[in-house]
Design a protein around this nucleic acid. Structure first.
Lengths: 177, 177
DNA sequence: TGATAATTGTTATGCCGTATACCGAATATC
DNA sequence: GATATTCGGTATACGGCATAACAATTATCA
């Protein structure tokens, strides 16, 4: 597996993001008063990690905007689809969401008729979570948007091989670090 | 540049993190009721990106705990060291921090005598930011901790070449996505 | 069996990061 | 010199994330 150079390893100048909206506006006119030096910051993995994560989430939101789904909501729908018959604690734990915080999140999804809480007959404390038909439909559309717009753009930027390598390393960090 | 396989590309099962403290407790006794399937979630770059970022920041905090510095505070000290004579707006913009939110942050650093605000003589609106001697000393110790404990651990996990490739791709995303 | 402990969903609450609107002082523009 | 802009700052709000506590239900075990 080979990684082609996508940029000079010691690049990183002007990581500022003053304008919240569109990218690529070099402030043209002004001589721009000399950009700040990031220095060792560009060697800090956590720094680039955070910035990249913000950009990726930002793009995700834009791509899936017509469906009004956040990354967290999308992950919940994905998980409910793959793991029917689970309760709130199991789903929340898997996603690293604390049970108290998962309540409002489910309220939101349920109020939009994307999923349902069903009292379990085995254990009447727990709520079995299920996708509704609308939930499945929205998930299907979301998957398509994510694949064709969001992930496709990442593939275009990095190339399929690099993207796979990146994903693998990130998963490794998330799992073993 | 070559990337050795750090893990199977389609691994990812049981990404749960129920216990906030130490890792590596397989809950031994119980048969563990079958782990949930992440499914397409393990192919979502943003998902692994976020999880990896949380882990890395978590480790950063632990490594630099004796100095009581957050990643954001560390990045400010680094930037002040590399770019003396800049004002709040310039530093904040470079780090993607909004000016209003940068005020309290600087208050914290200044109250600990790590940096100082100096009224500029050229433009008496702006505050020139400077590291104090103590600030430079703390920064030096922090750099050492980050390099020998934090980044070293990442190097150990990924290998130097993979780590460099990862950093490069993250910077590319942060810059061009 | 019955007392005690543990689990589930939930509420309340707080902290932190982030975003916007607005202000006074100082400066820039024309 | 009038107007607009910029700088640091305050107030405020929203969302993510964390803990404590509670009622209902279930599990544990003397």
């Amino acid at each position: 597996m080979t990684v082609s150079k996508t940029a000079s390893a010691t690049a990183a100048v002007d990581a500022a993001k003053p304008s919240r909206g569109g990218r690529k506006e070099p402030a043209e006119g002004s001589a721009d008063d000399a950009a700040l030096q990031l220095g060792e910051l560009s060697e800090l993995l956590g720094y680039s990690l955070k910035r990249a994560q913000l950009r990726v989430f930002e793009d995700f939101l834009r791509c899936v905007a017509p469906l009004q789904l956040t990354p967290a909501q999308f992950s919940v729908l994905l998980l409910l689809d793959r793991n029917p018959g689970r309760n709130q604690t199991e789903i929340a734990n898997t996603l690293g969401i604390l049970r108290p915080n998962f309540v409002a999140m489910l309220d939101g999804l349920e109020s939009r008729d994307l999923c349902t809480r069903i009292r379990s007959t085995n254990d009447r404390r727990s709520h079995i979570l299920m996708l509704t038909d609308k939930g499945r439909a929205v998930l299907a559309r979301a998957k398509k948007l994510v694949a064709t717009k969001h992930e496709a753009r990442l593939n275009e930027l990095l190339g399929p091989a690099n993207r796979a390598a990146l994903l693998d390393m990130l998963a490794t960090i998330a799992r073993e670090f």
